[in-house]
Simulated assay, not measured.
Amino acid sequence: MTAPVTRLWRSEREIALRAQLGAFRRGGGDPTSRFGREGSATRAVQTPQGVGTLHLVCRPGDAEVHAQAWGPGGPWLLESVPALLGDDDDASGFVPHHDLVADAWRRFPHWRVPRSGLVFDALAPAVIEQKVTGHEAFAGYRALVLRFGEVAPGPFPGLMAPPTAAGWAAIPSWAWLQASVDGARSRTVVRAAGYAGRLEEGAHVSVAEAHRRLRALPGIGIWTCAEVAQRALGDPDSVSFGDYHVAKDIGWALTGAPVDDDGLAELLEPYRGHRYRVQQLLGMAGHHRPRRGPRMAPRTHLPTRTR
């Protein structure tokens, strides 16, 4: 194992790594991401320079981040640290219009929208999460990464990097089904992998143009674009329209009753430019409607044997 490349970066605001990077973790068993009790965060990704592992340490309440990176993508990851931790996000025009939003902003005044700059890294798991429960999606993503991903460089046993775009495209159809990912979603990932270079350019154009390129591909709609923009592009306005929970939860928090996407658009219109900021702040503050009833059972997409 080669020695890591390192960087010390100091922000002008407090950095809480778990809050700042929590959106990148795809469930508690995500093999590409982990948080340590000592105030650390570790991610394994595919960068434009190759596979890399980024390990960040920041003591609670501090603004000094110690970064180490391994692998061919290590230098690229070190360069991305400020944007990943929200340094590009400008919250100066954000004005809360609801008491709960104001309270969440007081609780998380240092949180900023992250920007990884890695479009396909955000796109593949977002497609896997389309129209299924989080439990099912996270399990499928975990199974595929463990089977077809790459051992992460660095001293982190069990940490895996996701497949490259070419690696996603090479996964056989039956392996997708074994991971409970149906043909519609697997075809979308495979199709997008063929345009990965063009999609990655979306990190260097306007958010509107990045959305246009994503939505030009069959199987990618407004929800998936928002999931990508929130993580890869650092867009504070890409709210998750089409999500099973988001509109209901925000409606319940701000009005006392769940709303649909039209109602959500009306509620968030005063926040235009910062609508995702509101979504994330309310989520981090724990404002979710009460959920009752049994959990939806995971589906299987494997063919059954006939007797």
Score class of each variant (00 low, 15 high):
residue 4 P to A: 05
residue 4 P to E: 05
residue 6 T to G: 13
residue 12 E to Y: 15
residue 12 E to G: 13
residue 13 R to K: 06
residue 16 A to F: 09
residue 20 Q to N: 07
residue 22 G to E: 05
residue 25 R to L: 04
residue 26 R to G: 03
residue 29 G to E: 14
residue 39 G to K: 13
residue 39 G to E: 09
residue 40 S to M: 10
residue 43 R to T: 14
residue 45 V to P: 08
residue 45 V to F: 13
residue 48 P to Q: 01
residue 52 G to L: 12
residue 57 V to W: 10
residue 58 C to Y: 01
residue 59 R to Q: 14
residue 60 P to G: 01
residue 60 P to W: 00
residue 60 P to Y: 02
residue 62 D to A: 04
residue 65 V to F: 03
residue 65 V to T: 03
residue 66 H to M: 12
residue 67 A to R: 05
residue 68 Q to G: 11
residue 71 G to Q: 05
residue 77 L to A: 02
residue 80 S to P: 13
residue 80 S to L: 12
residue 84 L to I: 13
residue 87 D to V: 02
residue 89 D to Q: 04
residue 90 D to P: 00
residue 95 V to R: 14
residue 98 H to P: 04
residue 101 V to N: 08
residue 104 A to N: 01
residue 117 G to P: 04
residue 118 L to Y: 03
residue 120 F to E: 12
residue 120 F to T: 11
residue 121 D to M: 15
residue 122 A to F: 09
residue 123 L to K: 13
residue 124 A to Q: 09
residue 125 P to V: 01
residue 127 V to H: 07
residue 130 Q to G: 06
residue 132 V to A: 02
residue 134 G to M: 02
residue 137 A to M: 04
residue 138 F to V: 15
residue 139 A to R: 09
residue 139 A to S: 08
residue 139 A to D: 11
residue 141 Y to I: 05
residue 142 R to C: 05
residue 145 V to Y: 13
residue 152 A to C: 03
residue 154 G to W: 01
residue 155 P to I: 01
residue 155 P to F: 04
residue 156 F to P: 08
residue 162 P to I: 12
residue 163 P to S: 08
residue 167 G to S: 15
residue 169 A to P: 10
residue 179 A to I: 10
residue 181 V to E: 04
residue 182 D to L: 07
residue 190 V to W: 06
residue 192 A to I: 07
residue 193 A to S: 05
residue 194 G to E: 06
residue 195 Y to V: 14
residue 196 A to S: 15
residue 196 A to F: 11
residue 198 R to G: 08
residue 199 L to A: 06
residue 203 A to I: 00
residue 205 V to G: 06
residue 205 V to I: 05
residue 207 V to H: 05
residue 208 A to C: 03
residue 209 E to I: 06
residue 211 H to I: 05
residue 219 G to R: 00
residue 219 G to L: 06
residue 222 I to T: 15
residue 227 E to S: 15
residue 232 A to N: 01
residue 234 G to H: 10
residue 238 S to D: 11
residue 238 S to P: 08
residue 240 S to E: 03
residue 242 G to L: 02
residue 244 Y to N: 15
residue 245 H to N: 07
residue 245 H to T: 09
residue 246 V to G: 07
residue 253 A to H: 02
residue 254 L to P: 10
residue 256 G to W: 00
residue 256 G to V: 03
residue 259 V to R: 00
residue 264 L to F: 07
residue 265 A to I: 15
residue 268 L to G: 02
residue 275 R to W: 09
residue 278 V to T: 15
residue 281 L to D: 09
residue 283 G to M: 08
residue 288 H to W: 09
residue 293 G to I: 00
residue 294 P to G: 00
residue 294 P to T: 08
residue 296 M to P: 01
residue 297 A to C: 10
residue 304 T to M: 07
residue 305 R to E: 14
residue 305 R to W: 15
residue 306 T to W: 14
